[in-house]
């Protein structure tokens, strides 16, 4: 067998493996989407049917007419977008600094950044809530944003990528050429970080998109809900309207997948940019 044929066979086997893994990972979601098309009676069937016997669009109809689902998605989108911009901007610069400027003060700041990630936001959000309230920012995207301006893991992610893929020599060479520190960051470092920054954008966007504990206390009006808070509305005191909830979640998956596919293109293209460095 020629090397080429062998490579092709290996690739085929790898594709099959990946397909199987992806299908396994997607099974719970396939069931979720199927549930969106079920009647309340069929919802009760146990074990659940993977394909609805008597598919109905009733749930989707109800979700879109009885709840402001599109408004919620729009609120979430705006919040996620602004949060992403803030997080990418702060993380890019701070991540580069903590990665390439190993001064003691900077290291201490980095440890502080990381330590704040250990305590879950739900546990310490009350003092922040009182601040947002005092600023009159309840029920506004600005108030939501206060909790999502920075991300420890974002700074950490950029730091690790700076360490892994930006050689010190490159920075030294630029300094010897007389370049200013800001110039180096903007024209040398940033282009090399396109891939990691795009990945960070994905993570930041979805962190805000799926946020729950903070939006639920800051946004108390149905009109200003984010999507995840809106979804919680399908739970009554003791039961969950699972068919409606599933339909709504399935509908929400559409923009999620779209957003991921769009952002993903950016970090695939990141290869071209980072390829320049050798």
């Amino acid at each position: 067998m020629s090397a080429k044929a062998r490579a092709r066979r290996t690739n085929f086997l790898l594709d099959v493996t990946l397909f199987v893994i992806c299908i396994l990972l997607l099974t719970p979601l396939i069931l979720l989407i199927a549930n969106g098309f079920k009647t309340p009676q069929e919802m009760l069937v146990w074990p659940p049917t993977l394909f609805p016997k008597d598919p109905t669009l009733e749930n989707f109809h109800k979700v879109f007419t009885e709840t402001p689902l599109l408004q919620w998605m729009l609120n979430s989108f705006l919040f996620a977008l602004l949060s992403t911009v803030a997080i990418v901007a702060t993380s890019a610069l701070a991540g580069y600094i903590v990665g390439k400027f190993p001064f003691r003060a900077i290291n201490i700041i980095f440890i502080l950044f990381l330590a704040t990630a250990i305590i879950p936001f739900e546990v310490y959000m009350i003092p922040l809530y009182f601040q947002v309230k005092a600023l009159g920012l309840l029920n506004s995207v600005g108030g939501l944003l206060v909790g999502y301006l920075v991300m420890s893991f974002g700074i950490f992610l950029i730091r690790q990528n700076v360490i892994a893929s930006i050689p010190d020599e490159l920075l030294e060479a630029a300094r010897i050429d007389g370049a200013g520190e800001l110039w180096i960051f903007w024209y040398v470092v940033l282009p090399l970080l396109r891939g990691p920054l795009a990945a960070l954008a994905v993570l930041a966007f979805f962190q805000a998109w799926t946020a729950f504990a903070w939006p639920i206390i800051v946004m108390t009006r149905k009109k200003s809900f984010t999507i995840e808070v809106g979804l919680a509305n399908f739970q009554s005191a003791y039961t969950v309207d699972l068919s409606l909830l599933s339909a709504a979640s399935a509908a929400v998956m559409v923009p999620s997948v779209l957003a991921f596919v769009l952002l993903r293109r950016n970090f695939v293209e990141g290869i071209a940019a980072s390829g320049m460095k050798e």
């Binding site: 609120n75 705006l78 602004l82 506004s140 995207v141 600005g142 944003l145 108390t220 009006r221 009109k223």
Partner: peptide, 23 residues
């Protein structure tokens, strides 16, 4: 404008009901 989107202004005749039973 974007930052304030979704902001709700209070009205003298607004009465809000906070319930734990969506049904």
């Amino acid at each position: 404008g974007l930052l304030l989107a979704g902001t709700v202004t209070a009205n003298a005749q607004d009465v809000v009901i906070w319930g734990g039973f969506p049904e």
